[in-house]
């Protein structure tokens, strides 16, 4: 078939592996298809006010993370000294927000670190964990779900038993054990989260793929001789994309919450500052009992803001994908 149609354009150009010329054409078509799908999704999403506000909050945090070195007055893990005498600040410096004349907007921690700078740099850790974990969990989950749903049978059975097993693992305890085994740093926390969290995306995408598989356009592609991979990537994937995004945005929220929790317990990365490690330090130095709220209130507010934005974006998306909820 491919040889006869090399010269002229046919309706099958996206199905066979033709000459290089057609190859380029194929890539363009794929790119255009994905671009259109993405633009369409974006337009539907930004229709609602709460979603717009949430996107604004996320964008603001992204900017803060990118320009952290410009915004933060000190490196987050640089000890501050009193005056010129070179004495480490004793106990902690009060925040200049409350009238103290020392230039530390939110004061310093008991170890002598500037709290405001830590807060700014903490945005980086939160976004990094959230985005990387979400991209991988949604990506792996979608791929596994599509493969399981499309092939069915033994492949489906095997993959879904793995998912069932993962559902039997309690999230936080598992991440804690994994981080204890692998070593406490940010990458291992992200890795542990990815290992566990793709389970929910996989389950949902699989059930979607199961019903998509029976649709006429998939049957038509099969009859036309399209490869399995072609059907999965070009016919199924664009149709489950809204679900992938939905679980991706929830994934950001869950990952940030989990990282905060693990760090709070004391298994955070000792060389990076995150909002979770800030809370852990404030607790270790009894900031609660001393009423040093400027130390432990701001990180929690940041976590809450970022997470609720993730949930609201997800919910706005859910209403598009499932009009029944409206």
């Amino acid at each position: 078939m491919a040889q006869e149609e090399q010269s002229g354009r046919s309706i099958f150009t996206d199905l066979d592996d033709g000459s290089t010329n057609e190859q380029v054409d194929k890539w363009q078509r794929t790119a255009r298809l994905w671009k259109e799908t993405l633009i369409e999704q974006w337009k539907m999403l930004t229709d609602e006010l709460s979603v717009k506000l949430s996107l604004f909050v996320v964008a603001a945090f992204v900017l803060i993370a990118i320009f952290a070195p410009l915004i933060a007055p000190y490196p987050p893990l640089q000890r501050q000294y009193q005056g010129d005498a070179g004495i480490l600040i004793e106990k902690w410096a009060d925040p200049s927000l409350l009238g103290a004349d020392n230039g530390y907007l939110l004061g310093t921690t008991a170890e002598g670190f500037d709290i405001f700078s830590q807060l700014v740099y903490g945005t980086r850790a939160a976004l990094m964990v959230g985005l990387i974990a979400a991209v991988f969990t949604a990506g792996i989950g979608t791929l596994v779900g599509l493969v399981a749903g499309y092939y069915g049978g033994k492949v489906d059975d095997a993959l879904m038993r793995v998912v069932d097993f993962l559902y039997g693992m309690p999230l936080l305890p598992t991440v804690i054990v994994l981080v204890a085994v692998l070593g406490p740093n940010l990458w291992n926390i992200i890795l542990a989260l990815i290992i566990l969290q793709w389970r929910s995306t996989a389950r949902v995408i699989r059930s979607q793929a199961l019903s998509l598989r029976e649709r006429p356009f998939v049957k038509a592609a099969e009859v036309a001789g399209a490869s399995d991979w072609h059907i999965i990537s070009r016919h199924l994937a664009p149709n489950v994309l809204p679900m992938t995004f939905l679980y991706g945005s929830f994934g950001i929220a869950w990952a940030i919450l989990a990282e905060a929790g693990v760090s709070f317990i004391g298994l955070g990365d000792p060389n990076t500052v995150s909002w979770g490690t800030m809370l852990q330090a404030s607790r270790a130095y009894s900031a609660l009992q001393f009423g040093a709220w400027w130390w432990f209130v701001p990180p929690g507010i940041c976590i809450g803001l970022l997470v609720i934005s993730g949930f609201l974006i997800g919910r706005g998306y859910e209403e598009i994908t499932n009009p029944k909820l409206q």
Binding site: A260, G261, L279, V297, G300, V307, I308, F311
Partner: peptide, 23 residues
């Protein structure tokens, strides 16, 4: 309901301890 699920429970716990316990 959404707020309740977004703010980490351990953080709400910290704030409750601070206001009602310490203060």
């Amino acid at each position: 309901a959404l707020t309740a699920r977004s703010v980490p429970t351990f953080y709400v716990g910290l704030i409750v301890l601070w206001i009602f316990g310490a203060e």
